[in-house]
Design a protein around this nucleic acid. Structure first.
Lengths: 253, 253
DNA sequence: AAGTGGTCTAGACCACGCT
DNA sequence: GCGTGGTCTAGACCACTTG
């Protein structure tokens, strides 16, 4: 046993950097404060800028930092909890909720959406675009798909287009009896249009919440909502959700 | 106006690459197939490997690819839907579910967890580690925090340690009346221990599901479960969730 | 115009899984 | 040992915001 190999688990530099930065954020910085720029930080830690950026990227993914091109890197506030599922099901647009109708069109959806709605592949559906705000910041962009059969009484052109038309579609939808709903959450990256609506760059990580609304034994509406993953904590259930910010590597020693 | 500026929105190379690769994956590859290695791919597209990797990274984030060091890059199967919230609330470990108790200790939790449990900051709680499998693959690692007050009748050392002890704690917990529960989902990155349990590298993107279980007006248990974000779609609600894989830019042709 | 983060390059070496 | 993906470097230029 001459080679009593040191139990070296060579931690990647960016990983170690992330830990150091996290501790610094916890102790020496306050929310909204701006960090030194990336070139300075990299020099200070003696690493290449790309390596430093790898650490910053993860911290932004975890909601600890916020980076904006042309401006700088700031310490992010804790994630906001946004309710996406409640005990009692309601149609979209029912409550005076945080959603804001943006637009509405009548168009043929993608094959995937048509499948979920169980409509014909070439059958146009109402597509309502909505936007969700919290604390003055956009947190989600949604596309609501509503088959014409769900809103049969919608007068041909109740409103020509735009937000007024969107509200008209939702108003009609609410006349149906809602029998249930279910949701799914998965990780995605923002498409160009969603990114613009969320004030992020294309490809930014988002939480995609897909919700089916059931009525009369059918899927009467389908919502695909993309939430900013960096700033949002999605809450389901009875009350407001849990306020946990598990500090990594923080254990009882 | 000599400078009739082309309306150039110079799309980043990696973004365009991602689009091209997505289309190739949809049309020319099948699940499980191995892609050419990164150096070849980069050469084929005439970009640096770092740029190619940026595109692959996003595709992996979206669950389209699976990369394994020393092996290669393969086409990932569609994400599996895993139920994380049902209409009727149940204690963990009640159903013959997909969870598998791994271990159990009595330890002082982090300050954040202690706060959520409303226990004293130095008060030890039962910590049960569980693992969730689907189709033979690990999909989630969970830490369950249970204050001693929730399982007062747990005989001092019902089982010394390990999985048997974990099951004993859960058994005792189920004697309580469950009054409600709520959950929150947010994006995180895998800690070293979770990463190992999930067969991923540290820092891999995960969906962190934090669930509070209420009994007798208190939080009787707290679950922090980290799901592989690349392979999982979390479903809430009545039935199994929605099977939507919105193929970007894929329309009925 | 200056300064920021975002993209990209062309290398190098390392850790890991195979055979 | 060899091939894979993972990490890292030291530059360069671009896109964007702000004074």
């Amino acid at each position: 046993m001459g080679t009593t190999q040191l139990e070296t688990v060579p931690e990647p530099k960016y990983w170690h950097l992330k830990t150091v930065l996290t501790e610094a954020l916890d102790s020496e910085f306050s929310v909204g404060e701006i960090l030194p720029n990336e070139r300075d930080l990299a020099a200070r830690f003696g690493v290449a800028r790309a390596t430093l950026r790898q650490a910053l990227e993860q911290l932004e993914l975890e909601g600890r930092l916020q980076r904006r091109r042309g401006v700088g890197t700031t310490v992010a506030p804790p994630r906001v909890g946004v309710a996406v599922g409640t005990e009692h099901h309601v149609w979209p647009g029912t409550a005076p909720d945080a959603w804001q109708s943006v637009d509405s069109t009548l168009d043929v959806p993608s094959a995937a959406v048509a499948g979920a709605l169980e409509t014909g592949h070439d059958e146009p559906v109402h597509i309502v675009r909505r936007s969700r705000m919290t604390h003055g910041q956009p947190v989600a962009a949604e596309l609501l798909y509503i088959p014409q059969s769900s809103v049969p009484d919608l007068s041909a052109i109740d409103a020509p287009s735009g937000a007024a038309r969107a509200r008209a579609v939702l108003r009609e939808l609410q006349r149906l009896g809602l029998e249930g709903q279910d949701s799914a959450v998965e990780l995605g990256s923002a498409r160009a249009d969603d990114a613009k609506q969320l004030d992020r760059l294309p490809g930014a990580p988002v939480l995609v919440v897909t919700t089916r609304f059931f009525s009369q034994g059918r899927t009467a509406a389908l919502s695909v909502a993309t939430y900013r993953a960096d700033t949002c904590r999605l809450t389901f259930g009875d009350s407001g959700g849990v306020e946990i910010h598990e500090d990594p590597e923080r254990r009882a020693s």
